[in-house]
C-alpha cells in the first residue's frame, strides 16, 4: 500500500488517473459494443417474430464474442487500387474521437476520468472528427459506392451538428456551465427534459442522424450503396467501424442522459446503475427505430435539418435565453 502511494507520488496522481481511466474506458467500449451487437440482434429478432441468436451460450450471449474472434481471425483483404495510407488510417481514426468522448462522461458522482470545465465542447469537437475518417474511408477505398456514401455522410453530419449543438446550448444556458458534472448537479430538482422537451427531441433526432442509424442511415444504405463507405473493408477493419458505430450510439445516449435525464442521479440505487439504465433505455429506442422505420431520402434528410430542426432549435434557444434573462 505504501509502495502504491509512493508510485502515485512519483508519477503524479494525474498520470495514474489517466492510465486507469484509459484502461477502464477501453473495457467499457469493447464490452459495450459487444453487448450492443448482441442486443441489436435480439431486439431485431423479437421485433421480427423470431428469436435471434440463442445457440452460443445462454440466450446467445457468447455469440458476439464468437463473431469478434471470427473477424479477428479473418484475412485483411486490401483491394488493388486503394489509396493505401488513407485506407488503413480511416478505421483507426474513427476510433480515436470515440475514446476521447468517454473521458468527460460522468458515470457516477465520482466515476469520471476527468472533469473538464469545457467537457461538452471536447465531445462535440472530437465527434466531428469522425466525419473525417468516414470521408477518408470513402475516398481511399477507390469505390464509387464508398465515395457516394462518404459524401452523403459529410453533408448529413454538417447538417445535423448545428441543431445538435443548439439544442445542447439551451441546457448549457440553464445549467450555466460547460462541465458535464455541473450539468448533472443542476438537475437535482427536476430533469431538464421537463424544462426543455423540444431541445431533447431535437437532440435525440440529430443524435440518431449523427450516428448514421436508420432512418438516417444514408451513408450505408444497403439497398442503394451496398454497404456505403465501408464496402471495401473486411476483417478487423470492418469490425472497427462497427465498434465505432455502436460506441457512438452509446455516447449519444449517454449525453442525452447527462443533459436531459439527470445523468447518474436517482433514488435508492447507486448512481452508476441509474446512469446505465437511462442510457441503455435510450439505446433501446435507437435500436427500435432501426427495425421500424424505412430510410428517408437524401434531400428529405437535409430539408428536415435545415428547414425544421435548425429554425426550431434557434427559437428554442431564444425563448430559453429570454426566460432566463427575465
Amino acid at each position: 500500500m505504501e509502495r502504491l502511494t509512493d508510485i502515485i507520488a512519483l508519477v503524479g496522481e494525474e498520470t495514474v488517473r489517466a492510465i486507469a481511466g484509459l484502461i477502464g474506458v477501453l473495457i467499457v467500449v469493447v464490452v459495450n459494443a459487444i453487448l450492443l451487437t448482441w442486443a441489436e440482434r435480439k431486439v431485431a429478432g423479437h421485433m421480427q417474430r423470431r428469436i435471434g441468436p440463442k445457440e452460443v451460450g445462454p440466450y446467445g450471449l457468447i455469440q458476439p464474442f464468437a463473431d469478434t474472434f471470427k473477424l479477428l481471425a479473418k484475412e485483411l483483404l486490401v483491394p488493388k487500387d486503394v489509396a493505401k495510407p488513407l485506407y488503413h488510417l480511416a478505421p483507426i481514426l474513427i476510433f480515436i474521437p470515440v475514446l476521447v468522448s468517454f473521458i468527460v462522461i460522468p458515470f457516477d458522482a465520482q466515476l469520471q476520468v476527468k472533469d473538464i470545465n469545457m467537457g461538452i465542447l471536447v465531445i462535440l469537437a472530437f465527434s466531428s472528427l469522425s466525419v473525417f475518417s468516414i470521408l477518408i474511408a470513402g475516398w481511399g477505398s477507390h469505390n464509387k459506392y464508398s465515395l457516394i456514401g462518404a459524401v452523403r455522410s459529410v453533408a448529413q453530419n454538417i447538417a445535423y451538428e448545428i441543431p445538435l449543438l443548439l439544442s445542447l446550448l439551451a441546457v448549457i444556458f440553464m445549467a450555466n456551465s460547460f462541465s458535464l458534472k455541473d450539468i448533472v448537479e443542476a438537475q437535482k430538482g427536476l430533469w431538464f427534459v421537463f424544462y426543455q422537451p423540444i431541445a431533447f427531441l431535437i437532440f435525440f433526432v440529430a443524435g440518431v442522424a449523427e450516428t448514421n442509424r436508420t432512418p438516417f442511415d444514408l451513408p450505408e444504405a444497403e439497398s442503394e450503396l451496398v454497404a456505403g463507405f465501408h464496402t471495401e473493408y473486411s476483417s478487423m477493419q470492418f469490425a472497427l467501424f462497427f465498434l465505432a458505430e455502436y460506441t457512438n450510439i452509446f455516447i449519444v445516449s449517454a449525453i442525452a442522459t447527462t443533459f436531459f435525464l439527470g445523468g447518474y442521479s436517482g433514488p435508492v440505487l447507486p448512481g452508476i446503475i441509474w446512469f446505465f439504465v437511462k442510457t441503455y433505455g435510450l439505446v433501446f429506442v435507437i435500436l427500435w427505430f432501426r427495425w421500424t422505420f424505412p430510410r428517408v431520402r437524401f434531400d428529405q434528410l437535409l430539408n428536415f435539418s435545415w428547414k425544421i430542426l435548425i429554425p426550431l432549435s434557434f427559437i428554442n434557444l431564444l425563448v430559453t435565453g429570454g426566460i432566463l434573462k427575465i
Binding site: Q48, S223, F293, R295
Partner: peptide
C-alpha cells in the same frame, strides 16, 4: 419493397 426503402421488418412478417 419496404426492404428496398430501408425497412427490413415487414419482410419477415410478409414471409410469415
Amino acid at each position: 419493397f419496404p426492404a428496398d426503402l430501408g425497412a427490413l421488418t415487414p419482410f419477415l412478417y410478409a414471409f410469415d
